[in-house]
Amino acid sequence: MSGNPVERLGRGTTDLVVDLGGLARFAGRVVVAGSGRPWRLRRLLDEVFGIGVLSISIIGLSGLVVGLVLGLQGYNTLVRFGAENSLGAVVGLTLIRELGPVLTALLVAGRAGSAIAAEIGSMVVTEQLDGLRMMSVDPEDFVVAPKAMAMVISMPLLSALFITLGLFGGMVVAVGIVGGDAGIYLTSLESSVEFREDVLGSLVKALVFGVLVALIATWRGYTAEPNAAGVSAATTSTVVASSVSVLIFDFFITALWRV
């Protein structure tokens, strides 16, 4: 980095715009490549296994523990106002509107996003993508599209599992630890959750986060420097960039559409 500060600011801005433009063109190519024939269902299924099925344990355990904590914290706060019957509403709305999609996206970015970037990055290093191109197989169609698609499919499903297990965790606290009633918990839950505002909003968030993590992870791997340090940098920046952009997008989705 040389030159005066203004020059460096200009170069940084140009680099950012070039990077974002490259990402957008890459996204367009992947969508075009992935939506045409052949469908590559076998590849997609394998990727859903790697991204979705193998994430179930971490997502399920985290969801359960988050639900337990929310139940305890919510109870401790609500009991001061004599409103402990609203525990179900507090746990449910917090999980469905905010924590479910966001925590799922952060966990999946750390567990599966980093793996995607490392795998594609090491394929760049060992020139496997060039090998595919030599056999006139488009790597964006064969390698990137199934991974990105599997991420977009898995994210809402994992988020729904996270939320459901979290609601169960909250009920365990409400019934088992603070000695409440399961019926009161479920009634408060069911009467406060709206389909359009809460559940649909949660689904939209999870889909947006899935697209974000999928794009960032595959793009970082695809553009990794072809050496060992490049793969490690791609993996790190995948986790950092997708976590930060998930949180920023979460704020804007919440602010703009009140979901």
Binding site: V48, I96, I153, L157, L158, V199
Partner: peptide, 24 residues
């Protein structure tokens, strides 16, 4: 394949529970 099928089913069932039972 069976595990992938179970995963998708479990996810869809959770979504259905959230939408129908809770979402009204």
């Amino acid at each position: 394949d069976l595990l992938v099928g179970c995963f998708v089913l479990a996810g869809l069932l959770s979504l259905a529970y959230l939408s129908v039972t809770l979402g009204g």
